[in-house]
Design a protein around this nucleic acid. Sequence first.
DNA 1: TATTGTTATACTCTATAACTATA
DNA 2: TATAGTTATAGAGTATAACAATA
Lengths: 148, 148
Amino acid sequence: MKQGADLQSLVGYRVQRANLLMETDARAALAAHDLSPAKMTALILIRDNPGCDQTALGRALSINRSSAMKLVNILADKGLVERRPGRDLRTNALMLLPEGARQLEAMLAAVRQSDARMTQRLSAEELKTLRALLIRLGPAPTPEDDED
Amino acid sequence: MKQGADLQSLVGYRVQRANLLMETDARAALAAHDLSPAKMTALILIRDNPGCDQTALGRALSINRSSAMKLVNILADKGLVERRPGRDLRTNALMLLPEGARQLEAMLAAVRQSDARMTQRLSAEELKTLRALLIRLGPAPTPEDDED
DNA sequence: TATTGTTATACTCTATAACTATA
DNA sequence: TATAGTTATAGAGTATAACAATA
């Protein structure tokens, strides 16, 4: 199947293919835990931001409140995360439970292994470059971004 | 929201964030055409591989026959693509119709503009490097890959 | 008025399983 | 037996719209 210059020249296309490759492998690495890479990310964020609320979690994951709700339900049903009373009566404080911490360690080990395998053809130097370049993707910051 | 070393060190995480950013912008750029970036990719593949069958298209997009079927249905319903008799009686030959070619040109212009905007903070040299590094992601080729 | 959580509902994308026709 | 297309069905992930409680 020929893939002409139109596709190859689009950075977005290359990023999408790379993401599919990496995500598929990470998902397979997590299969034993029955959690997706995105849900593992949520566990990491809750661990590193104990007491955060669902809306903030959703913002960090780029999903809305309603989607964050479903995600937290799943993590809570599995006994990995707990909703505690938050800073006011509207808000939950999300906390990683001991079982969540335990499983997260195992998941991280599996995903790190996957990540290492999928990047093994790049040198340490090249990986550093790749990370730096990926971070700089996105629209240029404009003065308006400073507003209010 | 703090994002600790565990996330930042995973290349897969960075690629996922970059993909979300790029894909969201490309999707917005295509909104007027009511087609996703993936469907535009399908149009490009059909244009560049006239007469290809649905299974091959699906393989190129990393989706299965059934999903490719649905995708082609949508493109055909919109009058962008046509199923012609293929190389044997089981197979379709997919062809881009004139209306598909016309719309694809407009879509490509919009997506190229999106791509340029999302990569504007990288120099031409850096873009070249990024493309080259992204292509090298994936498991190392093994001798078994040569088998049959 | 604005925000948080919540629920109901729907849409997109993909997959599996089974069937038909053809090879 | 194997392959291409097709269909029905289901699941994951996300979104919108509305509501209650609280700020």
